[in-house]
Design a binder for these strands. Structure first.
Length: 284
DNA sequence: TTGTGTTTTATTGCCTCC
DNA sequence: GGAGGCAATAAAACACAA
């Protein structure tokens, strides 16, 4: 009784004028109603005031059935039908309604609610998939970051080692040496001289140049000087190797030179020359 | 028993399609 | 303009812990 009262109150409070409670028949109509207002009022008189509803006898006769749940068989059949097709054509709707002993409207409402539930579940599934994908990405991002940190610390450690080693070599680093670079033309003249295949003279990778003048021999074994591009500056380094020092007895004076390339297409930072070291010696 | 949270049934209002 | 779908919502029914 109380629930029925509440039901009426709720409908009234919501201004629900579209509902009629006629005995055991609940009629919902709103444009596409199952039964017109005229038809309904022919069958049962519409109650005139809520007070009438408190009369026990009247209430039992007039009030609508409580919301009832569908039986498990009905739900099972509806579920089976939903699996086949989640939309309901009018023909299928009436067939199902007949089969289940329900109003076609109830079948339609059941499908509608079922679709809403399916959609909610689908959203949950999509969320799970996305979350899993996000977690995987996050995990690989984390490991990349760790790897990055590890590599950075390796760089730092190697730099420290380099600094320690730098202290052990000559106090004045070679690359700080101030030299008067030879003009490019002079270098070009040096390297434009005839270059013999040093292999023929027994010294692998070396070349003897211009037999007439003091000969500059480029020892290509230690050289990283590109033979096809001798542009740049050449400067002597203090070390002049004597015959005694290296134990050789070829009658030649040795000197180390370094070459600073000014070539545009070299791979070096702006303002820095790319330095090639080479061992040269004059043939005296 | 009762309070509370969840599920199910149903309504309402809006929108789209024909 | 009617039919039907959908989102939002109400309310009954149900489940369950305290």
């Amino acid at each position: 009784m109380e629930s029925g009262r509440l039901f009426f109150d709720a409908c009234a409070s919501r201004g629900n004028t579209n509902m009629l409670f006629l005995g055991n028949t609940e009629l919902a109509f709103r444009g596409r109603s199952m039964m017109s207002l005229e038809e309904a009022s022919k069958r049962r008189p519409f109650f005139t005031s809520p007070d009438e509803l408190y009369d026990e006898e009247y209430y039992e006769k007039q009030m609508p059935e409580k919301k009832h749940r569908l039986s498990s068989e009905q739900v099972h059949l509806l579920e089976k039908s939903f699996e086949e097709e989640n939309k309901l054509e009018p023909e299928r709707k009436t067939q199902l309604a007949k089969k289940l002993g329900l109003q076609p409207r109830q079948v339609a409402v059941w499908f509608q609610n079922r679709r809403a539930r399916w959609k909610t579940k689908q959203l949950e599934r999509d969320f799970d998939v996305l979350k899993s994908s996000y977690d995987t990405l996050l995990s690989s991002y984390d490991s990349l970051m760790k790897e990055n940190e590890k590599l950075k610390s390796e760089v730092v450690s190697l730099n420290e080692k380099l600094q320690v080693e730098a202290k052990e070599v000559p106090e004045e680093p070679l690359y700080d040496k101030k030299v008067d670079p030879l003009p490019v033309e002079d270098i070009a003249s040096i390297f434009s001289t005839r270059v013999e295949d040093h292999q023929s003279s027994g010294s692998v990778g070396s070349a003897v140049v211009d037999e007439g003048s003091p000969q500059l021999v480029v020892d290509s074994v230690d050289s990283h000087f590109p033979a096809e591009n001798p542009g740049g500056c050449v400067g002597p380094v203090e070390r002049v190797q004597s015959e005694e020092e290296d134990g050789s007895d070829d009658g030649r004076s040795y000197m180390d030179v370094f070459v600073v390339s000014e070539t545009e297409n070299q791979n070096h930072e702006e303002g820095e020359g790319l330095v090639w070291w080479t061992n040269m010696y004059y043939v005296g």
